[in-house]
Design a protein around this nucleic acid. Structure first.
Length: 428
DNA sequence: TCTGGGGTCCTAGGACCC
DNA sequence: TCTGGGGTCCTAGGACCC
């Protein structure tokens, strides 16, 4: 048996931890730039606040019902996430926990075989809540896809299920699949859901489970589709990932600007800043990059009221030798800006992607690059350590700029209670 | 004038996830 | 006026090789 554990309205729950007066009150958390709603409490949902909708559209409703509204505070959420995951590792052992996202983890419950799974789930849920203050829902089943189905049901019927749903018999699985609309199946997005309903009269997870694997191969994205059918039928096709072995294959840092930007210098500053962040992530996983890509997104005139994505202009450079040194990556990235910049356009977003990643201990010096890389690595380590300790990008490269006109808006961020001494929670 | 078969590597793009 | 950010996996198809 496996399980998935999922924090309830995670970002909202983090905010509430330090504002207990908001318990049982509607709460929402906004994306960067205060653009979209990315987390909402059950109470906000009941009022009719939509998920992932633009903030400005929901604003009248939010103000009318006095919904507590927060800009996202990723320092806080990251730290709370760590605490939840640490709790799970202590309960189950490192090797039985796969962190799937900031608020979700898959668990291997092989050690609990033949026990009362409901009690196991309840015990995990209560311990996490007691140690961290974060409420979670748990789905237990033989495969990952079925765990997700169980977890959906646990969230949908919180009181009745006590946020724990176990699917360990054929009958329970069948019943759960029948109660699950096909678009809620993990791996079925909007496009597939529409296709399934219109062309194949597949409306529920149960209908989908009755399709043959070769059919799914043809119609639902190749092996991805056939695995999904197997998983729905209780045959495990997706193993728990080994955390030690997973390193990212691509690292990106991208942001919307706080307002539209037209100057090349500003774009270069932004790109240099994003490159520094990406390079830090790169060094954290001890990789070096061989490809640097830069893209910008233009602002287009609004299409009579309908939202429209701008055009993406991008370019990449292959480096002569893999590197993790910020200054080298910035040099490559900013010169790419020269290639894609069009002074007749306005821009609303830019980003940097590092790919072609290799372990940085295997970098071979080639004939054309001298052996001075080692001292550079030491410098980078020092900068990372200082920045980590101060947590405010104290040491920056000059190319990143100092005034940062393009910086995003974060107008309603709560204090970073758990990661900054000067913002710590005060007990009166 | 006739022009095979099997393989690898790479990129672009589509779908999905939280 | 205002619509996030960071990923993954897979396939098709082109270039190239022998």
């Amino acid at each position: 048996m496996k399980a998935i554990i999922d924090c309830n309205s995670f970002y909202c729950s983090c905010e509430r931890l330090f504002r207990p007066e908001l318990d049982e009150k509607p709460v929402v958390v906004l994306s960067n730039n205060d653009g979209c709603i990315i987390s909402r409490s059950d109470e906000a949902k009941e009022i009719g606040v939509g998920m992932a909708g633009p903030y400005f559209l929901a604003k009248p409703l939010i103000e009318k019902h006095n919904v507590a509204t927060f800009s996202s505070n990723y320092n806080l959420y990251g730290d709370m996430s760590q605490r939840v995951m640490d709790t799970l590792r202590i309960l189950l052992g490192d090797e039985n926990v796969e962190v799937y996202s900031v608020d979700e983890a898959f668990l291997d419950l092989a050690e609990f075989n033949k026990q009362d799974y409901f009690k196991v789930g309840l015990y995990i849920r209560e311990t996490v809540e007691q140690w961290t203050g974060i409420k979670v829902s748990i789905g237990l089943a033989p495969t990952k896809v079925l765990c997700k189905v169980a977890n959906h049901l646990a969230k949908k019927h919180k009181v009745k299920t006590q946020c724990v749903v176990v699917l360990d018999t054929k009958e329970k699985i069948e019943k759960a699949l029948q109660a699950t609309p096909v678009n809620e199946v993990w791996g079925i997005g909007r496009q597939y859901a529409e296709k399934l309903k219109e062309l194949n009269a597949v409306y529920t997870a149960y209908d989908l489970s009755k399709k043959a694997a070769p059919w799914a191969y043809k119609n639902l994205g190749g092996v991805v589709g056939s695995r999904m059918i197997k998983e729905l039928n209780g045959e495990s096709a997706l193993a728990l990932a080994d955390e030690q072995l997973t390193v990212k294959k691509m690292i990106a840092s991208t942001r919307m600007f706080g307002h539209t930007v037209t100057s090349k210098a500003d774009i270069k500053e932004a790109v240099a800043t994003y490159t520094s962040r990406a390079a830090e992530k790169l060094r954290r996983q001890k990789s070096a990059a061989t490809i640097v890509s830069v893209f910008v997104v233009t602002k287009e005139p609004s299409n009579n009221g309908h939202f429209r994505h701008g055009n993406t202009l991008s370019h990449y450079a292959v480096l002569p030798i893999a590197t993790s040194a910020t200054n080298e990556l910035i040099k490559a990235a900013t010169s790419l800006v020269d290639k894609i910049f069009d002074k007749t356009k306005q821009y609303k977003k830019a980003g940097v992607m590092l790919s072609g990643l290799v372990p940085d201990n295997t970098i071979q010096a080639n004939l054309f690059v001298s052996e001075k890389n080692n001292s550079k690595r030491l410098l980078m380590e020092m900068i990372d350590n200082v920045n980590f300790a101060m947590r405010n990008d104290v040491v920056k490269f000059a190319a990143s700029g100092t005034k940062r006109d393009w910086k995003m808006r974060v107008e309603m961020r709560s204090p970073r209670y758990t990661t900054r001494w000067n913002e710590m929670f005060v007990v009166k």
